[in-house]
Design a protein around this nucleic acid. Structure first.
Lengths: 338, 338
DNA sequence: AGCTGGCACTCGAAACGGCGGAGTGCCAGG
DNA sequence: CCTGGCACTCCGCCGTTTCGAGTGCCAGCT
């Protein structure tokens, strides 16, 4: 176990390094923090911290920088979540309140997060699988071609073209629409399949193929995994880490363009607690010198999706965590209202 | 007027510079192209080209690089549009054919363009103002709260929440829905306002406020300019211009994040001819060393939106133009089918 | 007139080397 | 267990040198 002072030294190192972006030495530390001990003592502490793997030196006779393990300890034990100022909270609210639809909410959120944290923001659309059905609409485009529109309680709208083998009459259409809605409106997506399983049988034999086709498309839409959509913003912030990053920025940009990677980044956990993944804890090459702060958000208690930011491991964790958490809360509120 | 050979020299300079990304000198030119003259002659030609402003040297006693004016001449007079190979065309078709809805089409297009040109791709969603109405749907969410869903012939779906002062009955809702649709389905957006202007008057006085509210929201949705949505991809390609770009990449990324800038980038022209904007021809700081190749696309003869790529002025214009044009054609086809 | 070879000149890029200073590890003494 | 002192290391900075690609110009050739 590390002594109280050694922890204090680690905290000071992290703070200074985050601020200056330069390796921090023993002398500078004692000058900028009231540790109450001499540089020499700090040096000894540093040696211990280095042995334990919390800090490292880029090369002999340079200052120390925190390792991933060091940041981990800092986040877990040494730092809290820094609450936002009143002004910031107000700004968030103002900024989000003007949203007209779901796309707009997500778009504003992503810009907001990027500005607030000065990092790359990632916002996942409310997941279909955890939403429930608000309404299903069936439209006739052509005699044998329908459009299926699915509206979720989070305001998300999905549409699909349905091609039937035979023309579908208006009466059948209206009938199907009514019965579908009465069965599944308000249901969670996962509950829909059993509800509609026997639906074709309640129709005339002639109509059953069409009904079955529509149902198939509907179920397909519900489970479609690729529809875990994600919006991303603030990529320009990557360039703020100019001096050593130009090499690093490339793989990061590439990674961020892949939906799958982004989804993994936000985390598989279903709960809405905040997760911080630091450096190599992200199992993706090129993201090894970045950290991810993510949290779930939702209209109720439960998370319907996640949002977060991606930045260098050398980031202001308390501030970032505060911003991410605050934004998630407000977005949840907005969704609950609509 | 420049002699034939001088033009040939300019073409050679552009081609070499695009290939090597390094200033090209007289000796290298004669070695890599059969100009039939000696380096000394080429030097004289270069001096003339420089006087005329087509090329410049970064510093005394270095090779020459084309200026914006030089690229302009190259694009206008010296280079054609390079058609894609059969394999490439096939790849495009395969890639786009799997799209399930409009979002998917646009998403695939943007990835495709980025891969094909190895640059940043920009695709505008089919514009609302040039689309026509396929269907309008009205749903009741709460007694006095409706959802308005607007579906366009290009597959785009817009939804809005409508808050009425008084509850709206199911009968009224069905009535309004039917009358609305019968009046505006198939109409172009610009034709809608006159069609619905007198609609409230045909309802009972009690119902008119609700009808008016719905209409107001509808019209608002139609004209909403901000709804010129845009998707962007391939930002990682920016990093390919490493050696001198790290400073330049920042403002470009920033510019690309602003919808307004992107829209201007694609061009205000309403027609579907291809436009190439080179360097300073883009009136936006930070995009002064980038070029934009854009073209309209649409399901019919007329363009419903634009797409294009953004890259360094030093780009392979013939190849890029070929790719952009080909992709636009295929996207047009896909839209026409759905 | 137009092309060519020759030549002196320019100037950036890369290689070299010396210096300064921040930082370290270690040790002896409080 | 802390502290001041001390010798050592090594990165980063800076001035210098060298190297070579490229230029402009000129005199001569066709």
């Amino acid at each position: 176990m590390l002594s109280e002072r050694r922890l204090e030294v680690l905290r000071a190192i992290v703070q200074d390094y985050v601020g200056t972006e330069e390796p921090v030495g023993s002398k500078a530390l004692t000058e900028r923090h009231q540790l109450g001990v001499s540089p020499a003592t700090v040096r000894n502490d540093m040696a211990v911290l280095e042995d334990e793997g919390y800090i490292a030196q880029p090369h002999t006779s340079a200052g120390r920088i925190p390792t991933d393990k060091g940041y981990r300890l800092f986040v877990d034990k040494l730092a809290g979540v820094k609450p936002l100022s009143v002004a910031e909270r107000r700004a968030i609210q103002n900024f989000l309140d003007g949203a007209v639809d779901l796309d707009d909410v997500v778009g504003r959120t992503v810009r907001l997060l990027a500005q607030l944290t000065r990092q790359v923001a990632v916002v996942q659309y409310p997941s279909l699988t955890r939403s429930s059905v608000r309404h299903v609409e069936l439209l006739s485009l052509a005699p044998a071609r329908l459009m299926l529109v699915l509206i979720t309680d989070t305001g998300r709208v999905e549409q699909r073209i349905v091609d039937c083998v035979a023309p579908v009459g208006e009466t059948l259409l209206a009938d199907l629409r009514a019965r579908l809605n009465s069965r599944i409106v308000g249901r969670r997506f996962s509950d829909v399949p059993p509800q509609v399983q026997d639906l074709p049988e309640s129709f005339e034999p002639d109509d059953r193929p069409a009904v079955a086709t529509v149902l198939a498309t509907l179920l397909e839409t519900l489970v479609e995994e690729k529809e875990e959509r994600i919006m991303l913003g603030g990529a320009a912030n990557l360039t703020r880490f100019n001096h050593d990053f130009p090499m690093t920025i490339r793989p990061v940009l590439e990674a961020l363009e892949e939906q799958m990677v982004l989804l993994k980044l936000l985390g598989e956990t279903r709960d809405s607690t905040m997760t911080v993944r630091i450096g190599h804890e992200n199992f993706h090459e090129g993201l090894n010198s970045t950290s991810v702060v993510a949290v779930g958000y939702g209209s109720g208690d439960e998370a319907v999706a996640k949002l977060g930011v991606v930045g260098p491991t050398r980031m202001d964790y308390p501030g970032t965590m505060g911003a991410v958490r605050a934004v998630a809360r407000y977005v949840g509120q907005i969704l609950a209202e609509s």
